[in-house]
Amino acid sequence: MMLKKLSATLVSVTTAAALCVGCSSSDGSGDTGPQPDENGITTIKLGVTDAGKKQWPILIEKAKAENINVELVPYTDYVTPNKALAEGQIDVNRYQHLIFLAQNQANTKDTLVPIASTEVFPLPLYWKGHDSLDGIEGQTVAIPNDPTNGGRAIKVLEKAGLITLKDNAKNALSPTPSDIDEANSKVAINDVDATQTAIVWDNGTPAVINQNFLQRAGIDPTTALTADDPKDASSEPYINVWVTRPEEADNEAINRITEIWYDPEVQVAVAEDTGHSAVTVKKPREELQKILDKLVDEVKANN
Protein backbone atom coordinates (compact mmCIF):
# COMPACT_ATOMS: atom_id res chain seq x y z
CA MET A 1 0.00 0.00 0.00
CA MET A 2 1.28 3.42 -0.86
CA LEU A 3 1.59 5.26 2.42
CA LYS A 4 0.49 8.87 2.20
CA LYS A 5 0.69 11.59 4.76
CA LEU A 6 -0.77 15.00 4.44
CA SER A 7 1.20 17.96 5.62
CA ALA A 8 0.71 18.34 9.35
CA THR A 9 -1.91 20.88 10.27
CA LEU A 10 -0.63 22.58 13.35
CA VAL A 11 -3.34 23.86 15.62
CA SER A 12 -1.41 25.90 18.17
CA VAL A 13 -3.14 27.09 21.26
CA THR A 14 -1.67 28.98 24.21
CA THR A 15 -3.06 30.24 27.48
CA ALA A 16 -1.97 32.04 30.59
CA ALA A 17 -3.72 29.58 32.89
CA ALA A 18 -1.74 28.80 36.00
CA LEU A 19 -2.21 25.03 35.92
CA CYS A 20 0.90 23.20 34.74
CA VAL A 21 -0.15 19.84 33.28
CA GLY A 22 2.58 17.29 32.72
CA CYS A 23 5.10 18.76 35.18
CA SER A 24 7.66 16.29 36.48
CA SER A 25 6.79 14.55 39.69
CA SER A 26 9.28 14.16 42.50
CA ASP A 27 9.55 10.40 42.08
CA GLY A 28 10.02 10.63 38.32
CA SER A 29 6.72 8.93 37.46
CA GLY A 30 4.59 10.36 34.67
CA ASP A 31 7.41 12.58 33.39
CA THR A 32 8.32 10.66 30.23
CA GLY A 33 7.44 12.18 26.88
CA PRO A 34 6.32 15.74 26.05
CA GLN A 35 7.08 18.22 28.85
CA PRO A 36 6.12 21.84 29.53
CA ASP A 37 8.23 24.52 27.84
CA GLU A 38 9.49 27.67 29.55
CA ASN A 39 5.95 29.07 29.41
CA GLY A 40 4.42 25.98 31.00
CA ILE A 41 2.88 24.81 27.73
CA THR A 42 3.02 21.10 26.85
CA THR A 43 2.70 20.37 23.13
CA ILE A 44 1.17 17.06 22.07
CA LYS A 45 1.27 15.88 18.45
CA LEU A 46 -1.92 13.91 17.87
CA GLY A 47 -2.31 11.71 14.77
CA VAL A 48 -5.85 11.45 13.37
CA THR A 49 -7.63 10.39 10.19
CA ASP A 50 -10.63 12.66 10.71
CA ALA A 51 -9.11 16.09 11.31
CA GLY A 52 -12.13 17.92 9.88
CA LYS A 53 -14.60 16.77 12.53
CA LYS A 54 -16.33 19.20 14.90
CA GLN A 55 -15.00 17.41 17.98
CA TRP A 56 -11.40 18.52 17.53
CA PRO A 57 -11.69 22.32 17.88
CA ILE A 58 -13.69 21.78 21.07
CA LEU A 59 -11.15 19.36 22.53
CA ILE A 60 -8.29 21.68 21.52
CA GLU A 61 -9.87 24.66 23.25
CA LYS A 62 -10.48 22.69 26.43
CA ALA A 63 -6.89 21.42 26.38
CA LYS A 64 -5.74 25.01 25.94
CA ALA A 65 -7.31 25.90 29.28
CA GLU A 66 -5.00 23.34 30.89
CA ASN A 67 -1.79 24.51 29.20
CA ILE A 68 -1.85 21.73 26.61
CA ASN A 69 -1.17 22.70 23.01
CA VAL A 70 -2.66 20.08 20.69
CA GLU A 71 -1.20 19.80 17.20
CA LEU A 72 -3.42 17.70 14.93
CA VAL A 73 -1.41 15.67 12.44
CA PRO A 74 -3.81 14.37 9.77
CA TYR A 75 -3.34 11.14 7.80
CA THR A 76 -5.26 9.74 4.85
CA ASP A 77 -4.59 6.03 5.40
CA TYR A 78 -4.72 3.58 8.29
CA VAL A 79 -1.12 2.37 8.28
CA THR A 80 0.98 5.52 8.51
CA PRO A 81 -0.34 6.79 11.88
CA ASN A 82 1.05 3.75 13.73
CA LYS A 83 4.32 3.89 11.83
CA ALA A 84 4.66 7.60 12.65
CA LEU A 85 3.90 6.91 16.31
CA ALA A 86 6.41 4.08 16.56
CA GLU A 87 9.06 6.31 14.96
CA GLY A 88 8.38 9.20 17.35
CA GLN A 89 6.96 11.59 14.76
CA ILE A 90 3.79 11.98 16.84
CA ASP A 91 3.03 11.41 20.53
CA VAL A 92 -0.35 9.67 20.39
CA ASN A 93 -2.95 8.66 17.81
CA ARG A 94 -6.69 8.15 17.89
CA TYR A 95 -8.20 6.42 14.90
CA GLN A 96 -8.08 2.63 15.27
CA HIS A 97 -9.83 -0.20 17.03
CA LEU A 98 -8.14 -2.89 19.08
CA ILE A 99 -8.14 -5.59 16.44
CA PHE A 100 -6.45 -3.26 13.97
CA LEU A 101 -3.80 -2.48 16.59
CA ALA A 102 -3.44 -6.22 17.23
CA GLN A 103 -2.79 -6.83 13.53
CA ASN A 104 -0.15 -4.11 13.64
CA GLN A 105 1.52 -5.58 16.73
CA ALA A 106 1.51 -9.11 15.33
CA ASN A 107 3.05 -8.11 12.01
CA THR A 108 5.60 -5.51 13.11
CA LYS A 109 8.10 -5.02 15.91
CA ASP A 110 6.00 -2.17 17.33
CA THR A 111 5.01 -2.27 21.00
CA LEU A 112 2.33 0.40 21.01
CA VAL A 113 -0.20 0.42 23.85
CA PRO A 114 -3.85 1.47 24.27
CA ILE A 115 -4.30 3.99 27.08
CA ALA A 116 -8.02 4.82 26.83
CA SER A 117 -11.14 3.82 24.92
CA THR A 118 -13.48 6.06 22.95
CA GLU A 119 -16.36 4.31 21.21
CA VAL A 120 -17.49 1.44 19.01
CA PHE A 121 -18.91 2.19 15.58
CA PRO A 122 -21.27 -0.23 13.85
CA LEU A 123 -20.03 -1.46 10.48
CA PRO A 124 -23.00 -1.10 8.12
CA LEU A 125 -24.02 -2.27 4.65
CA TYR A 126 -25.44 0.40 2.33
CA TRP A 127 -27.09 0.17 -1.07
CA LYS A 128 -27.87 3.45 -2.76
CA GLY A 129 -31.57 3.88 -3.51
CA HIS A 130 -32.61 0.84 -1.46
CA ASP A 131 -34.18 0.65 1.96
CA SER A 132 -34.11 -3.14 2.37
CA LEU A 133 -32.13 -6.21 1.33
CA ASP A 134 -34.84 -7.18 -1.17
CA GLY A 135 -33.27 -7.88 -4.55
CA ILE A 136 -29.70 -8.02 -3.31
CA GLU A 137 -29.32 -11.73 -4.10
CA GLY A 138 -26.92 -12.12 -7.02
CA GLN A 139 -25.31 -8.72 -6.44
CA THR A 140 -21.61 -8.15 -5.80
CA VAL A 141 -20.95 -6.39 -2.50
CA ALA A 142 -17.88 -4.21 -2.00
CA ILE A 143 -16.02 -4.56 1.31
CA PRO A 144 -12.80 -2.95 2.63
CA ASN A 145 -9.72 -4.95 1.68
CA ASP A 146 -7.73 -4.48 4.89
CA PRO A 147 -7.66 -7.64 7.05
CA THR A 148 -9.53 -6.30 10.07
CA ASN A 149 -12.33 -4.29 8.48
CA GLY A 150 -12.60 -6.83 5.66
CA GLY A 151 -12.99 -9.70 8.11
CA ARG A 152 -15.53 -7.74 10.11
CA ALA A 153 -17.48 -6.89 6.94
CA ILE A 154 -17.64 -10.56 6.01
CA LYS A 155 -19.06 -11.32 9.46
CA VAL A 156 -21.69 -8.61 8.97
CA LEU A 157 -22.75 -10.21 5.68
CA GLU A 158 -22.73 -13.68 7.24
CA LYS A 159 -24.97 -12.55 10.10
CA ALA A 160 -27.35 -11.01 7.57
CA GLY A 161 -27.59 -14.39 5.83
CA LEU A 162 -25.99 -13.11 2.63
CA ILE A 163 -22.89 -15.30 2.66
CA THR A 164 -21.88 -18.67 4.08
CA LEU A 165 -18.42 -19.39 5.43
CA LYS A 166 -16.61 -22.65 4.87
CA ASP A 167 -16.71 -24.99 7.86
CA ASN A 168 -13.07 -24.38 8.79
CA ALA A 169 -13.57 -20.60 8.85
CA LYS A 170 -16.82 -20.25 10.82
CA ASN A 171 -14.94 -19.16 13.96
CA ALA A 172 -12.16 -17.24 12.24
CA LEU A 173 -11.17 -13.97 13.88
CA SER A 174 -10.91 -12.18 10.55
CA PRO A 175 -12.25 -14.33 7.70
CA THR A 176 -11.10 -13.53 4.18
CA PRO A 177 -12.89 -13.77 0.82
CA SER A 178 -11.23 -17.15 0.27
CA ASP A 179 -13.09 -18.43 3.38
CA ILE A 180 -16.47 -17.84 1.74
CA ASP A 181 -18.47 -20.79 0.45
CA GLU A 182 -19.46 -19.11 -2.80
CA ALA A 183 -21.80 -21.89 -3.94
CA ASN A 184 -23.95 -21.44 -0.84
CA SER A 185 -23.83 -17.64 -0.65
CA LYS A 186 -26.42 -15.20 -1.94
CA VAL A 187 -23.96 -12.45 -2.93
CA ALA A 188 -20.43 -12.23 -4.28
CA ILE A 189 -17.66 -10.18 -2.68
CA ASN A 190 -15.34 -7.60 -4.18
CA ASP A 191 -12.71 -6.40 -1.73
CA VAL A 192 -11.52 -2.89 -2.55
CA ASP A 193 -9.46 -0.23 -0.82
CA ALA A 194 -11.51 1.24 2.03
CA THR A 195 -11.36 4.66 0.35
CA GLN A 196 -13.21 3.22 -2.66
CA THR A 197 -16.19 1.70 -0.84
CA ALA A 198 -18.20 4.93 -0.78
CA ILE A 199 -17.31 5.60 -4.42
CA VAL A 200 -18.64 2.25 -5.67
CA TRP A 201 -21.71 2.74 -3.45
CA ASP A 202 -22.36 6.00 -5.28
CA ASN A 203 -22.23 4.03 -8.53
CA GLY A 204 -24.97 1.69 -7.32
CA THR A 205 -22.93 -1.15 -5.83
CA PRO A 206 -23.91 -2.42 -2.35
CA ALA A 207 -21.00 -1.67 -0.04
CA VAL A 208 -19.87 -2.09 3.55
CA ILE A 209 -18.51 1.32 4.53
CA ASN A 210 -16.73 2.27 7.73
CA GLN A 211 -17.34 5.51 9.60
CA ASN A 212 -14.63 7.81 8.21
CA PHE A 213 -15.47 7.22 4.56
CA LEU A 214 -19.19 7.14 5.26
CA GLN A 215 -19.12 10.70 6.50
CA ARG A 216 -16.83 11.97 3.77
CA ALA A 217 -19.36 10.75 1.20
CA GLY A 218 -22.27 12.38 3.03
CA ILE A 219 -24.10 9.08 3.49
CA ASP A 220 -26.89 9.10 6.07
CA PRO A 221 -26.07 6.41 8.71
CA THR A 222 -29.78 5.73 9.18
CA THR A 223 -29.99 4.31 5.64
CA ALA A 224 -27.95 1.23 6.57
CA LEU A 225 -29.58 -2.04 5.56
CA THR A 226 -27.80 -4.08 8.21
CA ALA A 227 -24.87 -3.75 10.62
CA ASP A 228 -23.23 -5.43 13.59
CA ASP A 229 -24.25 -4.50 17.14
CA PRO A 230 -21.74 -2.24 18.96
CA LYS A 231 -23.24 -3.22 22.33
CA ASP A 232 -22.67 -6.93 21.81
CA ALA A 233 -19.70 -8.53 23.59
CA SER A 234 -18.44 -9.71 20.21
CA SER A 235 -17.73 -6.06 19.38
CA GLU A 236 -14.93 -5.76 21.97
CA PRO A 237 -12.21 -6.13 19.29
CA TYR A 238 -13.68 -3.07 17.59
CA ILE A 239 -13.39 -0.69 20.54
CA ASN A 240 -11.60 2.41 19.29
CA VAL A 241 -8.66 3.49 21.41
CA TRP A 242 -6.07 6.16 22.09
CA VAL A 243 -2.63 4.68 21.44
CA THR A 244 0.89 5.75 22.38
CA ARG A 245 4.36 4.31 23.00
CA PRO A 246 4.86 2.37 26.27
CA GLU A 247 7.35 4.90 27.61
CA GLU A 248 4.76 7.69 27.26
CA ALA A 249 1.74 5.78 28.57
CA ASP A 250 1.81 7.66 31.89
CA ASN A 251 2.47 11.09 30.46
CA GLU A 252 0.11 13.47 32.26
CA ALA A 253 -0.71 15.69 29.29
CA ILE A 254 -1.39 12.79 26.95
CA ASN A 255 -3.68 11.14 29.47
CA ARG A 256 -5.44 14.40 30.22
CA ILE A 257 -6.39 14.70 26.55
CA THR A 258 -8.01 11.26 26.68
CA GLU A 259 -10.03 12.42 29.70
CA ILE A 260 -11.12 15.62 27.99
CA TRP A 261 -12.54 13.43 25.23
CA TYR A 262 -15.39 12.49 27.60
CA ASP A 263 -16.30 16.11 28.28
CA PRO A 264 -20.02 16.56 27.51
CA GLU A 265 -19.39 19.23 24.87
CA VAL A 266 -16.89 17.01 23.08
CA GLN A 267 -19.29 14.07 23.24
CA VAL A 268 -22.12 16.14 21.74
CA ALA A 269 -19.82 16.96 18.82
CA VAL A 270 -18.85 13.29 18.46
CA ALA A 271 -22.52 12.35 18.28
CA GLU A 272 -23.13 14.97 15.60
CA ASP A 273 -20.01 13.95 13.70
CA THR A 274 -21.08 10.29 13.63
CA GLY A 275 -24.77 10.74 12.97
CA HIS A 276 -25.44 9.50 16.51
CA SER A 277 -24.25 6.03 15.49
CA ALA A 278 -21.26 5.74 17.86
CA VAL A 279 -21.59 3.96 21.20
CA THR A 280 -19.32 5.45 23.87
CA VAL A 281 -17.16 2.93 25.72
CA LYS A 282 -15.22 3.45 28.94
CA LYS A 283 -12.89 0.60 29.82
CA PRO A 284 -9.83 0.68 32.10
CA ARG A 285 -6.43 0.66 30.42
CA GLU A 286 -5.63 -2.72 31.98
CA GLU A 287 -8.73 -4.29 30.46
CA LEU A 288 -7.96 -2.82 27.04
CA GLN A 289 -4.45 -4.26 27.23
CA LYS A 290 -5.81 -7.71 28.12
CA ILE A 291 -8.15 -7.64 25.14
CA LEU A 292 -5.28 -6.51 22.91
CA ASP A 293 -2.92 -9.22 24.16
CA LYS A 294 -5.54 -11.88 23.51
CA LEU A 295 -6.18 -10.55 20.01
CA VAL A 296 -2.45 -10.45 19.22
CA ASP A 297 -2.15 -14.11 20.22
CA GLU A 298 -5.13 -15.02 18.03
CA VAL A 299 -3.74 -13.09 15.07
CA LYS A 300 -0.35 -14.77 15.40
CA ALA A 301 -1.99 -18.19 15.71
CA ASN A 302 -3.86 -17.60 12.47
CA ASN A 303 -0.92 -16.20 10.51
Results as ranks from 00 to 15, higher is better:
Met2Gly: 09
Leu6Asn: 03
Ala8Gly: 09
Gly22Cys: 13
Gly22Ala: 13
Ser24Ala: 15
Ser24Ile: 11
Asp27Glu: 09
Ser29Lys: 07
Gly33Arg: 10
Gln35Pro: 06
Glu38Asp: 13
Glu38Pro: 05
Asn39Arg: 05
Ile41Pro: 12
Thr43Gln: 12
Lys45Gln: 00
Lys45Phe: 02
Val48Met: 01
Thr49Gly: 01
Asp50Val: 00
Gly52Gln: 10
Lys53Val: 07
Lys53Ser: 12
Gln55Asp: 01
Pro57His: 06
Ile58Gly: 01
Leu59Pro: 04
Ile60Gln: 12
Lys62Cys: 13
Lys62Asp: 03
Ile68Cys: 11
Ile68Glu: 06
Asn69Met: 13
Val70Lys: 10
Val70Trp: 10
Glu71His: 15
Glu71Gln: 15
Val73Gly: 05
Pro74His: 12
Pro74Gln: 11
Thr76His: 04
Val79Glu: 10
Glu87Leu: 15
Gln89Lys: 15
Gln89Leu: 07
Gln89Pro: 04
Asp91Glu: 05
Asn93Ala: 07
Arg94Tyr: 13
Tyr95Arg: 00
Ile99Cys: 00
Leu101Glu: 15
Ala102Glu: 08
Ala106Asp: 10
Asn107Met: 01
Thr111Val: 13
Leu112Ile: 10
Ile115Phe: 05
Tyr126Ser: 04
His130Gly: 04
Gly135Pro: 09
Ile136Gly: 12
Glu137Arg: 08
Thr140Glu: 15
Ile143Val: 14
Pro144Ser: 02
Thr148Tyr: 00
Asn149Ala: 02
Asn149Gln: 03
Gly150Cys: 00
Ile154Gly: 08
Lys155Ala: 02
Val156Leu: 00
Val156Asn: 01
Leu157Gln: 14
Ile163Arg: 11
Ala169Lys: 06
Lys170Cys: 01
Ser174Gln: 03
Ile180Leu: 05
Ala183Lys: 14
Lys186Arg: 10
Lys186Gln: 07
Val187Met: 13
Asp193Val: 13
Val200Trp: 03
Trp201Gln: 13
Trp201Gly: 06
Asp202Arg: 14
Asn203Met: 11
Gly204Glu: 11
Thr205Arg: 03
Ala207Arg: 09
Val208Ala: 00
Ile209Leu: 02
Leu214Trp: 09
Arg216Leu: 14
Ala217Gly: 06
Gly218Ala: 05
Gly218Trp: 13
Ile219Phe: 09
Thr222Gln: 12
Thr222Asn: 12
Thr223Met: 07
Ala227Ile: 07
Asp228Ile: 09
Pro230Ala: 02
Pro230Phe: 00
Lys231Ser: 15
Ser235Ile: 08
Pro237Ser: 03
Tyr238Trp: 04
Ile239Gly: 00
Asn240Gly: 11
Val241Trp: 02
Trp242Asp: 04
Arg245Ile: 10
Glu248Arg: 10
Ala249Tyr: 09
Asn251Ala: 12
Arg256Lys: 15
Arg256Phe: 11
Thr258Cys: 10
Ile260Gln: 12
Tyr262Asn: 12
Asp263Val: 11
Pro264Cys: 02
Glu265Asn: 03
Val266Asp: 01
Val268Ala: 13
Glu272Arg: 04
Asp273Leu: 14
Gly275Glu: 06
Gly275Asp: 05
Ser277Thr: 08
Ser277Asp: 00
Val279Lys: 01
Val279Ile: 04
Lys282Ala: 15
Lys282Val: 15
Lys283Arg: 15
Pro284Leu: 14
Pro284Val: 15
Gln289Met: 09
Asp293His: 06
Asp293Arg: 02
Lys294Val: 06
Val296Trp: 04
Glu298Thr: 10
Lys300Trp: 04
Ala301Glu: 08
